[in-house]
Design a protein around this nucleic acid. Sequence first.
RNA 1: GGUGGGGUGGAUGAGUGGCUGAAAUCAGUAGUUUGCUAAACUGCCGUACGGGUAACUCUGUACCGCGGGUUCGAAUCCCGCCCCCACCGCCA
Length: 423
Amino acid sequence: MLQLAFIRTNKEKVLNGLQKKHFQDIHLVDEIISLDEQRKNLQTQSDELLSKRNTASKSIGALIAQGKQQEAETNKSNVAALKEQIDALTGQLNEVEQQLNQQLVRLPNLPNELVPNGKTAEDNQVMKQSPDFPKLHPGAKPHWDLIIQYDLVDFQTGVKITGSGFPLYKGRGAKLQRALIQYFLDYNTAAGYTEYIPPHIVNASSAYGTGQLPDKEGQMYYIKEDDLYLIPTAEVPVTNIYRDEIVPASKLPIKMTAYTPCFRREAGSFGKDVRGLNRVHQFDKVEIVQLTEAANSYAALDQMVAHVEQLIISLGLPYRILRLCGGDMSFASALTYDFEVYSAAQERWLEVSSVSNFENFQTNRLKVRTKDEQGKTQLLHSLNGSSLALPRILASMLENFQTPEGIQIPEVLRPYFGASVIQ
RNA sequence: GGUGGGGUGGAUGAGUGGCUGAAAUCAGUAGUUUGCUAAACUGCCGUACGGGUAACUCUGUACCGCGGGUUCGAAUCCCGCCCCCACCGCCA
């Protein structure tokens, strides 16, 4: 969430930023500022009373020690009178703080100045695009036909076991998934990211920390009995590793990577968007996360973008990089680059990675801090990106690399997959 | 699931109603001593939200797992919850 002190002193900036993000409830800002005023007021008052009570209580102890019972008793009744006021004030204070916090978590992050204006995906800015597109042979098929032809994924049985959107990978399809995961992780760790295998289920505090709650409550699978959520991305457990910690500056930047399955309810989607592997409820993804000092986060973002780009290039997939416009970026993000690969048979772009700088929006909730040179605590910046999401990579590989003789496997994957072609 | 033990600052760990925001030790940090390393000695060494200030400093309050209660006063007593450890049961 945004920092109160920042909102207080930069109201115009906040309003402009929210507008750029096409955030509706602009009035929240004024509400927050006014609640904050009330809060400060109440706190000052109640602090004063508490201070009085504390001194009086201490004196009672001293008086009793001196045997001055009488005076002690008068003091006692004085404090008892204070108590009513204190209870009333702290009650109000709690109420106001609660309201303030409720409103505060509803404000999205502000966009960086590089973020283009715009409302929908149409307005995203294309930063880079591969010049070449594969020329498919006549009779080339979309991936949902190819996975049947080569018996790689069995959607029917997935439906039987669970329901639609839960693919059952099979044989070479399963092995290709495993090869991709292994390759991605090796690629990330070679770049200095520490590998983790986090829990795939998180508690509400973790989901709040990264901003999935309360914003995207309905998109996560929820286990009621235990009040836990299936992770929609490894970002959630991994970013929470450093929750409530003050990280020594010497350890920065923190670079982490993790493979996890991801679970998304994706309520309301339909049509060709969800055909085949384009959109599913459970999928595999390898994630990268960084925690950096505030001054370094945009350099880290560039570094992560270059990192993901090289990974896609190494697979030989046609791609483009988009800078998301204010209306299309996520709640918590300050600047996001999306990577899309071209899926030649469908003739459409598929998002395979989203690399974002959250600045201190997540770390403010998570309380991830460091000490600066003056010894003051400072919030870190958090960033993450997919590296990469598997199903759409698979879809794109199948479609782009199909030949009449079979599916060609990219060079870099062959050691992991153990074959150069799927026939 | 059952029984027992326990949750205190970066770590270990003392503290059973006021002198405790919290001993001591270790780690960290600044310095002194030292031919270097090591050792020894000295100072500093929690977070958040307020007030005040040009700033350093100063100052108030809260926080000893979380929430409530008792009391003039709670880390300390009472109640509820969460978590951890050990053993037993079950089990990949």
